[in-house]
Amino acid sequence: MIKLLNIKKSFNNTIVLDNINMVFEEESITAILGPSGCGKTTLLRIAAGLINADEGEKKGVDQKKLSFLFQEPRLLPWKNAWKNLELVLPDSIEKETKKKLCFEMLELVGLKGYENHLPSELSGGMCQRLSMARAFIIQADILFMDEPFQSLDLKRRDQMINLLKSLWIKKKPVVIMVTHDVQEALLLSDKIYIFSDKPTKILKEIQNPMPFEERTVKNERLYELEREIINKYIV
C-alpha cells in the first residue's frame, strides 16, 4: 500500500497542493482527476520522487521498482525500438535473454517487425506503445501515468487503454494515473480522486462501481457515471 500524507507544495509563494492525503491500494489502479493546472502532475512527480514536497510524507514507494508513462514517449531518438526497451532492463540479465524479452514485449504491444526502427521512423501511436512496453517490461511494482493518452484520437486511445489493461492484468502493479478525462479515469481505475482547482484539495474519493472487465466504451453505464461526475464535481 502506498500512502501520501499531508503533502504540501508551493511554487513562488503560490500554494499548489495543500495538505493532500491519499492511499493507493495494492493491485489497484487509481486515477487523480482534476482540471488542467491544478497540480495533479506535481503530485504524481512528488510520489515518483522526481521532485520533493515542501511538507508531508510518502510511504511504500522507496525501494520499489518504478515505471512511468509520461505525456510524451520520452524515447531515446538514437536507439532503435528494442534497444530502447533493453536499456531499462537490469544489467544482471544476459544480453540474449534481454533481446528475447524485448522482442516478446514488442510483439505484445503490436510492434513486431519494427524492432530495428528508430523512434523517428514510428508513428506517434507506435511510440506511445513502445513507451508502454518499456513501462511494463521491467515488471514494476508501481506504474505512474501522466495523461499518456492525451495526444491520441479516440480510437487509438481506446486501443491503448485495452492494451494497458491486458498488460496490467499480468502482474497488477499499483497504478497511479493523472488525467483530466473523466471517461479515461472510469475506463481504467478502481478508485478516483477528484481534485479542486488551486490551491488543490481533494473534492471527492469515488470507488468505480463498474467491475474491471466491464469497463469498456460499449458499456452504457460508463456514460451515465461520466455525466454524473461531470455534473456533480466538474461543471
Binding site: A48, L66, S67, F68, F70, R74, L76, L87, I138
Partner: peptide, 13 residues
C-alpha cells in the same frame, strides 16, 4: 532533461 528524468525513474547508473 525529460530523458534524464526518464533515466532516473528507471534507475539508470
Amino acid at each position: 532533461v525529460k530523458l534524464i528524468e526518464m533515466a532516473r525513474i528507471y534507475k539508470f547508473s
